[in-house]
């Protein structure tokens, strides 16, 4: 069976011929599109390492069939920075040492970007912690992660204000 889908991946529209409907979005990215920044920690929705944005929302790409997402827009860690300029979340992760081994990091960052877009947590660290709890970090970088998310959110808000002014 060959299925053809279109996906916009990191702002680039692509037509993808899938020979197998079993391919998850995660495996599509990693094994077929050479976008290996997105990580597989569990493949079962239990760790968040595979978090990407689909149509602007953070989801676990390991539990999504690629074929079912026909027509969607996907944003991965590789598409986050504007050229050489890191996204504020990326910059804040470095500054706050919000990672150690870095394996959970792409998922954490995409989750943080999704969280900020959801705009539910505000500047309450406790809400940020809760909202970031779908991303395990075995190295235990949670403190830096929370700080980085809060700071990036402030910066994005300030940038937006500046733009508006």
């Amino acid at each position: 069976m060959s299925l053809s889908i279109t996906l916009t991946v990191n702002a680039v529209p692509r037509t993808i011929a899938l020979d197998d409907p079993r391919v998850t979005l995660l495996d599509l990215l990693r094994e077929r599109l050479d976008l290996t920044g997105t990580k597989k920690g569990c493949d079962r929705g239990q760790c968040g390492a595979c978090t990407v944005l689909v149509d602007g929302r953070r989801v676990n790409s390991c539990l999504a069939l690629a074929v079912s997402l026909d027509g969607a827009e996907v944003l991965t860690i590789e598409g986050l920075a504007e050229g050489e300029v890191p996204h504020p979340v990326q910059a804040a992760f470095i500054e706050h040492d919000a990672f150690q081994c870095g394996f959970c990091t792409p998922g954490q960052i995409m989750s943080a970007v999704g969280l900020i877009r959801e705009a539910q947590a505000g500047d309450d660290p406790e809400r940020v912690r809760e909202a970031m709890s779908g991303n395990l970090c075995r190295c235990g970088a949670y403190k830096g992660i929370t700080e980085a998310v809060l700071e990036a959110q402030r910066r994005l808000a300030a940038d937006a204000e500046e733009k508006a002014a």
Binding site: G37, A81, I94, T105
Partner: peptide
């Protein structure tokens, strides 16, 4: 100092074993 490999790790550019093909 911040991590020298930080940039790679926040952009998905750090290649872990399974990222090779």
């Amino acid at each position: 100092l911040t991590r020298r490999d930080g940039q790679l790790k926040v952009t998905g550019g750090a290649r872990y074993a399974a990222d090779n093909h």
